[in-house]
Amino acid sequence: MARKKQISISDIAKAMGTSITTVSFILNGKAKERRISDAVNKRVLDYVKKVGYKPSQLVRKPAGRTKVIALLVDNVADPSFSETGRYIEDIAAEYGYQVLYCDTANDLNKATQHIQLCIEKEVDGLIVIPPEDFEETIMRTKQRIPIVLFDRFIPEIEISYVVSDNRKGAYDATKYLLEQESKRIGLVSLYSNQTHIRGRLDGYMDAMDEFRMQSFIKKVSVESSPDEIKEQVIEFIVDNKLDAVLFATHSLAVKGLRGIKEKDIVMPKIVAVGNRVLLEYGVAEISVVEQDAAQLAKKLTEILVGEMEGRLQEVSRIIIPCQLKK
């Protein structure tokens, strides 16, 4: 005989047409405290009794309850994300939460699977770096579990996010190169319509237009191999006689620097949107547009905890300044 599927809190929320957070408050006896109507409270409790719901081991009644936040990033090895994650762990611990890491590889299917598992395991909330084409998934998810977007956002959807000021960061970087008397400055970026990549392109163009300089832009596919990216970057630099390059991501900068060293070409001045570890390459020409990991983590955790505890009713849109490390 097939084993009967255990009813989860997400199943109850779906059946009642309400959020997981609301059901959780009711089950924990906090309906009045959270201003949940008597009608909704009774309807949920009656349904719970009818289906014989029993809390899972992951989410127990308050005294011994494990509180968990899931952090979904597209590359847990990226120093920028791992540094922010460490800060999130420390801050979340102050609120009594543990952090679960999930690597989505910027893949929609993987992200969706991770989110579904988090919902089934009754994780309390999500901090998510959204992959491409995430709109439909996020619309479904935000009705079922508290969620805050990180690093990039989806303009068409009303949802809280905390991001870096990518446009201003790229503008400052390009302006810095121009003020260093670089004349032929190229941008190495990705084929992507996501907000962080668009912002960095816009910032580069803002500075180039302001100084009335010719722009040089190379976009590569995220599906390209490291060797392919290295070859494309070298060709881009040599063919356009570039004396400076802005790399739009940490990963692109690492691959580009390896290519430059392997081919032993003249090193142009370089600024990368990334992490200070790039400075350890020991090349004087490298500067970094660094995200403020501590502030990003602080705001992400505060907003998510506020939403999980029902204290925040409005969407939060937070933009954190970047820092140019020369």
Rank of each mutant, 00 (worst) to 15 (best):
A244D: 06
M205L: 15
D239R: 12
A173T: 01
G199N: 04
G203R: 04
D172F: 03
K255N: 10
K218S: 11
D209Q: 15
S225F: 12
S221I: 05
G186K: 05
K168E: 13
V163D: 11
V238F: 13
Y204L: 04
V220K: 05
K183R: 10
E262T: 14
Y176D: 08
V222W: 15
K261V: 11
K183A: 08
R184Y: 15
V273C: 03
T174F: 14
S189A: 09
G256I: 04
S224K: 13
R212Q: 15
I270S: 10
S164E: 02
E181G: 12
V188K: 02
K219V: 11
I197Q: 00
L190V: 06
A253F: 12
G169C: 15
Q232Y: 09
V273Q: 00
I217C: 03
S164R: 00
Y171R: 00
V266I: 09
N240Q: 07
K255L: 14
R184I: 03
T174C: 14
K218D: 09
G274P: 01
E262C: 11
F211L: 05
Y204T: 00
K241V: 09
S192E: 10
V220C: 13
M267F: 10
E235N: 09
I197V: 10
T195F: 10
G186E: 12
D165H: 02
T174N: 13
K168R: 12
D165A: 01
I229Y: 08
A248H: 03
Q214E: 14
R258D: 08
E179N: 09
M267P: 02
S224I: 03
R167F: 10
E210T: 05
N240Y: 11
L201I: 09
I265T: 11
Q214G: 07
L246D: 01
K219N: 07
D243L: 04
M213F: 04
R198A: 12
V254S: 07
P226S: 12
S221R: 07
Y171E: 00
K175D: 03
S251H: 07
D239P: 04
G259N: 04
T249H: 02
E181C: 11
A170K: 00
E179C: 10
Q194C: 12
N193R: 14
S225N: 14
I185S: 04
R184E: 15
S251A: 12
K269F: 06
D206H: 13
G186I: 04
Q214C: 05
K168V: 03
L187K: 10
G203F: 07
E235G: 02
K263F: 10
G274M: 08
Q232T: 02
V273G: 00
G169E: 07
Q180I: 01
G274I: 00
P226G: 08
A244Q: 02
E179P: 05
K183T: 08
S182M: 08
V233R: 09
G169Y: 07
G203E: 08
D239C: 11
A244N: 07
L178R: 02
F216S: 02
V271R: 01
F211E: 05
